[in-house]
Simulated assay, not measured.
Amino acid sequence: MTGPAVVFAGVAHSHPFADAANLRDRGARIAGVWDADDGQRRDGFSARFAAEPHATLEGLLDTGPDLVIATPRTPRAPAVVAACAAAGVPVFVNKTIAATEEALASLDAAAAAGARFGTSSVLRFAPAVAAFAALLDGSRVRAVDVTAQHDIAGFLTPERAWQDDPASGGGTLLSIGVHAVDLVDAVLPLDRGRAVLEGAIVVDARGSAGAVPTRSEAVAVVRADTAEGIPLTLTISGVPGPDRYALRVVTDGGLLELALGDGDDLGYAGLADALLATTRGASLPAPWRRSAAGYRLLLDAAVTIRTRREVAA
């Protein structure tokens, strides 16, 4: 196969398997894979996609790929970005890329130094999200209410418990919350070149464990104001039940709503198209400057929620 060479730095959850299948279907060559935490998972990926397994990230990058797709366990993401920057290879990181302020600062520094990386929820690439953004184009937005529901039962299994750890994967608030903030960023227009969440301030944030035995929040509600004064309400939940991602936007022209769930096109194909375009010279999708604003909002909310919990204990 003579298509672009794409390698995978980490296969920590299901997304890289979907990415590889979609990219292969579009003519890309899945050239290699590395994972520092789960050799069995790496080898399964290797066998499925005929991707050369590598014992080190350096060995993977030495093959000279056209693009890296990174899905390591969250604490490793900044180091992967730094290694790709040193090798001069663009990298797209599947969520979640940061769960601590230290990781956020490291990624900010990498971006300032010229590292080429992007990161996003796959929902940004869903056709219905793009169509909804087109409906909002030119509207005066007054308020936004977004819900991101994804059952976290999978996070509570031994092999994925790192995702439920607030200091490791970020817990529900970060891992599911990325869907919420990326939906807001995807549908609201840039203001003078600035992403809508840049400068957003958390007004209040509350979380609860619910009936699910989790180390993080099972449910979180975050209220924030954008720098332009648009009130946001983010409901982030990992309770049992089907996935649901919904937006309600109040504009001067009326109320607009969008809902996506199981069975809908959630953006995996669109992401693959955007990534392939990168190998042909297009800009990386969801550059860090835009994604960082959402992570900063979620981390501010996490401090509020988790400090309150510690005081109550």
Rank of each mutant, 00 (worst) to 15 (best):
S106H: 12
C84R: 07
P127T: 03
T74A: 13
I69H: 06
F125S: 04
L57Q: 11
T74H: 03
A70R: 09
A87E: 10
G88I: 04
R116M: 10
N94P: 01
L61W: 11
A113F: 10
A87H: 12
A85R: 14
L135H: 06
D66K: 01
A111T: 02
G88L: 13
A128N: 07
P65T: 13
G59M: 10
E58R: 13
T96R: 02
A70Y: 08
A133L: 03
V122P: 00
T71Q: 13
S106E: 15
N94G: 11
C84D: 04
K95C: 05
A112Y: 07
R76G: 02
A82N: 03
A128P: 11
A133M: 01
P65V: 13
A99K: 06
S121C: 11
V122M: 02
L57N: 03
S120K: 04
I97G: 08
A130H: 15
C84N: 11
P65I: 11
R76D: 14
T71F: 01
A133Q: 00
L136C: 03
F132C: 09
A83F: 09
A113H: 04
F125V: 04
K95M: 10
D62H: 10
C84E: 06
A131Q: 10
V129P: 01
L123H: 05
A86G: 14
R116W: 05
A126S: 12
T63P: 07
G88P: 01
A128Q: 15
D66P: 11
F132K: 05
V91A: 12
N94Q: 15
T119C: 12
L60Y: 06
V81E: 00
V81W: 01
L136R: 10
A85N: 13
D66A: 14
A128G: 11
F92E: 00
A110F: 12
S120T: 09
G118Q: 10
A115I: 02
V80H: 05
D137N: 01
I69M: 12
A87P: 04
A113P: 01
G88Q: 10
P127Q: 04
D108G: 13
A103H: 13
A77R: 01
A103V: 01
R73N: 09
F117H: 07
A98S: 08
D66H: 15
A79K: 12
A128I: 00
K95A: 15
D108M: 13
A133T: 00
A111D: 14
R76Q: 14
L135W: 07
A85I: 00
P127A: 06
P65W: 11
G64A: 12
V91W: 05
V80Y: 00
A83I: 03
F125D: 02
A77H: 03
A109Q: 14
S121D: 13
V89M: 11
D66M: 07
A79E: 15
V93M: 07
A83E: 12
G64E: 13
A131R: 05
P65M: 06
I69Y: 01
A99E: 12
L123K: 04
L104E: 13
V80N: 07
S121G: 08
